[in-house]
């Protein structure tokens, strides 16, 4: 029995973690894995911390990625990477979008956004960080940032046997397919 693999996609509501994880899970299912995915949602407002947990292997029981067990954490926002650090498996990898979204308490002057998160995390674990928003903007639309991150995740997990272009075609609106394919490959080749 192959070991169950754990992936966490974390970010801020509205960043597109849901589409990225949808493409990811549909690719994993095609590859024949048992897959469970957990996504707690409930409030309509955007701007809160969000996480999607994806687990795959021969047989998966719990849908929850436990502490110290994520093979890869993809953080769509810097501080969210820090928030979820304790879920990373020792020896696991962080893919971090070098991007900040200021939370309300910082806006109101009641708290300060921590400085130097990425450097701090690099001292602890393996980190791949880059400005996904800039990569996506160069391709024509900053919103494709989520798929750039998906490309980097797929590379980090070594999931090369899956036809990801086909999955993008199946899950994305027609007019965004080209952009998203480019975004995926840009992320993959980082």
């Amino acid at each position: 029995m192959s070991e169950v693999k754990n992936i966490l996609l974390v970010g801020v509501g509205g960043q597109g973690t849901i589409l990225a994880s949808k493409i990811l899970t549909s690719g994993l299912i095609k590859a024949g894995y048992d897959v469970k995915m957990s996504e707690i949602h409930g409030m309509s407002q955007r701007g809160g911390s969000v996480s999607t947990q994806v687990r795959y292997g021969d047989k998966v029981y719990s849908p929850i990625v436990g502490k110290g067990s994520a093979d890869v954490i993809v953080a769509f926002e810097e501080m969210e990477a820090l928030r979820w650090l304790d879920h990373l498996k020792i020896g696991g990898k962080m893919v971090i979008n070098d991007y900040r979204i200021q939370p309300v308490p910082v806006n109101l002057g009641a708290a300060e956004y921590p400085e130097g998160i990425i450097e701090h995390l690099k001292e602890k674990c393996e980190v791949l960080s880059f400005k996904a928003a800039e990569v996506a903007t160069e391709l024509g639309n900053p919103k494709a940032m989520n798929i750039v991150l998906l490309g980097a995740l797929v590379k980090a997990m070594g999931l090369d046997e899956i036809d990801w272009d086909a999955e993008i075609e199946a899950n994305v609106k027609a007019k965004f397919i080209d952009l998203n394919k480019k975004a995926f490959h840009a992320g993959y080749s980082l």
Partner: peptide, 17 residues
């Protein structure tokens, strides 16, 4: 209990608004 990475750096909450 699982072995985990730890840090002293504090995060800021993101309450819904």
């Amino acid at each position: 209990e699982p072995e985990t990475y730890t840090t002293d750096m504090k995060t800021v909450v993101r309450p819904p608004a």
